[in-house]
Computed example of a mutant assay.
Amino acid sequence: MEADVTQGRWISPEAGRTTVAEWAEQWFSAAESGWKPKTRHTYRSVLDRLVLAHLGRVQLAALRPIAVNKWVGTLSERLSPSQVRQAYRLLSQIMAAAVDNGMIPSSPCRRPRLPRIPEADPRILTVEQVGRITAHCTLGDRVLVLLLAYAGLRIGEALPLRRRHIDISGGRIVVAEAVSELPGGPVIDTPKSHQRRELAVPAFVLQLVREHFAALPDEPDAFAFPGRRKHTAERQQSYHGFRRRFNRAVTAAGLDGVTPHDLRATHASWVADTHGVLLAARRLGHANASVTTRHYARPVDGRDAEVARHLDKIGRARSGTQRARKARKVEE
């Protein structure tokens, strides 16, 4: 014990007797000020339902890796892989903070076998398919769909746009806010990762925005997509209302299973195909281009066949050159 004290490794036994629930509440209270409302709500729910309900009464010093592994296995039997991983990441953060604050000497979260999340490719649409969807939308919804497909906005970034965020004459749009749907109602905050960005928007989209704005209040702070009923006109329209209309338009267009988020992935693929993944990442607001390629950008249909034809062309040209050289050698 004296050696541990001398080397700064000594842990008070009283600290280890603190329960997981007691320490988790201290950690949550200290950390929540830096989180977005949606993150705060999600963490609170996961903490109560999946962490404290199972491990809350266990003392920090008594929580062993084998108990964490058993807990992960129990959750895996009834929850999706993403929910299990989310719960484990949260517990891991709480235990790491306990180590940093001298509550326990080491974390019991030591890389258990987590369930794998199946990779699902996003639906990448063609320009013609996006046009078929917008053909069945009212003007306001048509503008909204086109901003998702031709500017790569998240739906939560598009819904709270205000008139001052869209510069029609300058051809640019500013993404400065995002809305999250929470049990207590929608909350407007900064975009994901607090990233404010400006995007150039195609002229034909801006022309439709101009037509759409003609029927809205001419005020800088007026929402570009206000609530559709009189008593909701002073706030942004709800995601659920738009989603119902979007689903009807998708069905009317002869498509199936398309989501608003697929339009963001579609934009990423279009831009990556023509101008590279780095520009696609910047337009989507990703700090790392690997996120864009892993979750959004996909090869545009037909490009793989084009690659094969190009390789065939250069292969034939090389073979022809070799045959010509052999023919000259024979003549010589």
Rank of each mutant, 00 (worst) to 15 (best):
M1R: 12
V5A: 14
G8V: 07
R9W: 08
A15C: 09
R17P: 00
T18L: 11
A21I: 02
A21F: 01
W23F: 11
S33P: 02
K36P: 04
T39C: 02
Y43T: 00
S45G: 08
V46L: 12
I66Q: 13
K70V: 07
S82D: 09
I94A: 10
A98K: 12
I104E: 11
P105D: 10
L114G: 06
P115M: 04
D121V: 13
T126H: 05
V130N: 05
G131E: 12
I133S: 11
T134Q: 06
V143C: 12
V143K: 03
V145E: 00
G152D: 03
L161Q: 02
D167S: 13
V175K: 04
A176S: 14
G184F: 01
P186S: 03
V187I: 10
D189G: 12
Q195S: 12
F204D: 11
L208Q: 12
F213L: 14
A214N: 08
A215T: 15
L216A: 10
L216C: 10
P220A: 04
P226R: 08
R228F: 01
E234R: 15
Q236G: 05
S238A: 06
F242D: 08
R245Q: 10
R245L: 00
P260M: 01
D262V: 03
L263H: 00
L263K: 05
A268V: 02
G276P: 05
L278M: 07
L278T: 11
L279N: 00
R283T: 01
A287Q: 11
A289Y: 03
P299Y: 02
G302V: 08
A305E: 15
H310L: 14
G315H: 03
A317R: 11
A317I: 06
G320M: 09
R323F: 07
